[in-house]
Design a protein around this nucleic acid. Sequence first.
DNA 1: CAGTATAATTGTATCGATACAATTTATCAA
DNA 2: TTGATAAATTGTATCGATACAATTATACTG
Lengths: 236, 236
Amino acid sequence: MIKYQQIAIEIETYIEEHKLQQGEKLPVLETLMAQFKASKSTVTKALDLLEKKGVVFQVRGSGIFVRRHKRTGYIGLLSNQGFTSELEDFQLTSEVIELDVRKPTQEAALNLNIEENSDVYYVKRVRYINGQTLCLEESFYNKSIVTYLNNEIVSQSIFHYIKEGLGFKIGFSDLYLHVGKLNEEEATYLGLKEGDPKLFIETLFHLANGQPFDFSKVTYNYEQSQFFLQATSHVL
Amino acid sequence: MIKYQQIAIEIETYIEEHKLQQGEKLPVLETLMAQFKASKSTVTKALDLLEKKGVVFQVRGSGIFVRRHKRTGYIGLLSNQGFTSELEDFQLTSEVIELDVRKPTQEAALNLNIEENSDVYYVKRVRYINGQTLCLEESFYNKSIVTYLNNEIVSQSIFHYIKEGLGFKIGFSDLYLHVGKLNEEEATYLGLKEGDPKLFIETLFHLANGQPFDFSKVTYNYEQSQFFLQATSHVL
DNA sequence: CAGTATAATTGTATCGATACAATTTATCAA
DNA sequence: TTGATAAATTGTATCGATACAATTATACTG
């Protein structure tokens, strides 16, 4: 493990274990440098990472402080590693509706940046949280990257498989959110009524090298969907 | 202006002006170092900033590439500088419904971390985009920070005033999203029907020193609300 | 010519040093 | 006690150097 990541993990673990609250002050840089036997730059890098993650905030001339969101039960929108890692505290299961290799829709081909006659894995599943329907998900995986999927993988964590099984590094993703009304099919799968509100999120996931590999359209059960996200000012 | 920020701005401007597309390669680090007469660390810092902002992505051993989201007309969720800076390309106006000094609700006091008998500025406005209702907004400003507001400020950009007029630096913010159905009042203000879908976002804005100064509850017109956001993997 | 090993390219991690800006604390005068 | 001023604290910006990891290009081999 890389040093600054290790430091970040240890600091975060410390915050967790000691249940530090919003605004509580961490040891000063000098102390952390000594404690972790690392240079100022390295510790700073660890702290920047934690700041990006929303765990701490730094104030020049003052110190390093814990940042916390108070509410629980909200799904983090920015953990682009799939939900499984995000929702460890919850019972998350999946029911696979469809799984096959097919030609992509025009939209999917465009987003995945592939030809319309190339192959994709199509996955459709309903995901449940604590026994309630959470969302209806349709995903298109570029088959030249995600070369193999089966029912077992798909009913568990696809992202875990892509990282561990296939050895890819996940990079960034673009999310597009809409609000609208459920159509009949969506309502049926989610156990709601046609015309009920829906949150609809399209996500384009990329590998670390910039290749898009998964275009995903998810319709959320509005009764279960509470999301949070933490923003940081970019200055520019 | 600080050097690495300046470099970041110039690179971003270059990308804009040359209309570089997703995946196009920028000059290599060495070149950028020479071009901006800056050390490797400084250029890297500028690039990290742009990466955080979703403008570029870097691939070790390969290069620095442009990152772009294709869709236009979407509102960025993470620009916690208020919408005015975000939506420069659109006609954004506000109608002020209420503006007064009052005692905070229990909820607002809790979020702003103040006593229930201290004062807040309460602002309620409807915001329009290209002549259409965009959202109904209720905000509570900690009056001991935002000491003065008037109708003119409130009908324009409150955040611009807080930064430029009052000289504060905006820090981070926490967003909580829900989907639900419009009640009668909301529907009236937004020109929609009771029971129509709504996106409801509560945001707690903090100064750079960590003090919360604005607790804000916004109900969006689902017909106008298209949001996008860019996620980056934090590794940890 | 295909496949593999090697070399060159290019971004990342780490150290450490210097100067500096924002905040907080201490000092001192009125 | 108040309020200004100075000093100490503490994170930020910048340089530059070394070593390294991932990717890409090249050379080599069969």
